[in-house]
């Protein structure tokens, strides 16, 4: 069995970010980039399945050569090899999904494990799109996973509780926070990861169109919260509430 895990590199969630002058992209001063936290959970889950059942775990990353660092981290956690689809263009989720679907077919993948979303864009699209493109069953927001001969049982975290699904493989799952707690890659494994195969291919060689009629128009910083004021008493409070319209009608 072969598991494919997608890894995205994101600006460290704790870094301060701001839009550039043209409001086109989000920037940060020398912030560290790190593996998308949900993807790390996906890698950990795949590696646990590997340790239990001997599956092969393949990492896919899409982006500039800088993302190798996050991919090496995934290899250090225990994945077997990586495929880096190299492009310097910022691709939208549909194009990313098409790449993943294509690689999954080429590699005869049985199970795709992804984060439920990335902490930069917060779209939560890609897993669903990949499942749609491949016409495979999907289990999203997974917090528990068990595996049978050719099926998966997953528990999903949904608004009104937990939903249990059984999926036929091949399938796509996207993972939620509570699925597991990723291990620290040990230093010996970091060193071993250096020698694991990381195959680089060019996005342009995949013959997938770059444009999809989807465009990011602008980014803005969240509005600054105005400073609070101290009121003298309830009368003034009612006054203010009336004035600031929305609250009391």
């Amino acid at each position: 069995m072969k598991i494919l895990v997608c890894v995205k590199q994101v600006i460290n969630p704790y870094a301060k970010v701001f839009p550039d002058e043209e409001n086109k992209i989000v920037r940060s001063n020398n912030a560290r980039y790190s593996i998308n936290p949900f993807d790390e959970i996906a890698v950990e889950e795949a590696v646990r399945l590997k340790e239990k059942y001997g599956f092969e775990v393949i990492i896919v990353g899409i982006g500039s050569l800088d993302i190798q660092e996050s991919m090496r981290r995934a290899l250090a956690i225990g994945a077997d090899r990586g495929i880096l689809v190299n492009t310097d263009v910022e691709l939208c989720t549909l194009v990313v999904s098409k790449i993943i679907a294509k690689l999954a077919q080429e590699e005869n993948i049985n199970l795709i494990v992804m984060g439920k979303q990335s902490t930069d864009g917060d779209h939560s699209h890609t897993g669903q799109m990949v499942a749609g493109l491949l016409d495979w069953p999907q289990g999203t927001f997974v917090s528990e996973l068990t595996i049978g001969d050719d099926y998966l049982k997953v528990v999903r975290e949904v608004d009104n509780g937990l939903e249990t699904l059984q999926l036929v493989m091949p399938a796509v799952i996207t993972v939620d926070l509570r699925l597991n707690e990723p291990r620290y890659p040990s230093l010996p494994n970091i060193i071993k990861a250096k020698n694991k195969p990381l195959n680089k291919i060019n996005f342009s060689d995949l013959n997938i169109p770059e444009h999809t009629g989807y465009e990011e128009i602008r980014y803005d910083s969240p509005l600054k919260r105005e400073q609070g004021i101290i009121l003298s008493g309830s009368e003034e409070l009612v006054d203010k509430l009336n004035l600031s319209s929305m609250v009391v009608k």
Binding site: A15, K16, S28, N29, N30, A31, R32, S34, Q68, E69, R72, R73, A76, Y184, P185, L187, I190, I191, K194
Partner: peptide, 26 residues
């Protein structure tokens, strides 16, 4: 903290990964 002089450029990828892992652990 954001760095004015980015010392990490002096580190190999492996050194950086090791530092990040130990920092995270610590």
């Amino acid at each position: 903290m954001d760095l004015l002089i980015n010392l990490e450029e002096c580190y190999s990828n492996e050194d950086r990964m090791i530092q990040a892992t130990v920092a995270d652990f610590a």
